[in-house]
Amino acid sequence: MSAALELSGLTKSFGKAEIIRGVDLSIGKGERHAIIGPNGAGKSTLFNLITGRFAQTAGTISLHGRNLAGLEPYQINRMGLSRSFQITNIFPAMTVFENVRCSLLWSMGYKYSFWNLVSRSKALTEGAEQILEQINLTARRNLPAGVLSYAEQRALEIGITIAGGADVIMLDEPTAGMSHSETDYIVELIRKVTENKTLIMVEHDMGVVFGLADYISVLVYGEIIATGRPEEVRGNAKVQEAYLGEALEDEH
């Protein structure tokens, strides 16, 4: 299995503070990989490095074998990597339908065209409606996205993230701030929409992590202290000590 995403010797410093301290990680195609770790471990920073939001200080990131150094987020996105954000990041003033349709434009080849009318494209309309169906927001179609409930906005964000047909999906705390039933709903949704895709997610809810992930990496103070199958990670003494013992206790 060739790697969808490969990090080697990845480092990121903000001034003197070294947030990511030499991360090596290989995520295979079709894998569901969760990154866990205590607050401030650098999980979100790692996401921001991979997606081109920040530039790394040292090391390389490659997507399907191609080095991402110096690429802008939109270029990385066009290579088939899409992400969601920890804090809901949608287009609040646009309708739900419009949100989804905008996220389809590039992948459907419309680019910056000003000679096509979006409403005339059947493929675009149907594609957006299909995504809405998948994320159960068909009924909310014509509402401004900003008025949706929190869980619905999170679902919409996942919809936007997967709409472009990217094969590597990165979700940053998709269930943060959700009730139990909402979490179940989102987990089901994630499972459904990321089928046959590579999923990389940061998540605090251990129930979600162990239920969804094929592999887990534990990030502590900018270093990955363990990577492996859920049961291996659960049994790892170092992980128990650094993080998981505490986190699992919190669950109960």
């Binding site: 987020p73 910056y112 065209s113 009318l117 936007i160």
Partner: peptide, 28 residues
């Protein structure tokens, strides 16, 4: 009016609302 209904016109709205999100949808 027609310009506002084209892909680039729609994305102008998206960039106005949230330029960062638009970047992660493949648009500069």
């Amino acid at each position: 009016y027609l310009f506002s209904r084209t892909p680039v016109g729609r994305m102008a709205n998206a960039v106005r609302d949230n330029p960062e999100r638009a970047q992660f949808l493949g648009y500069s």
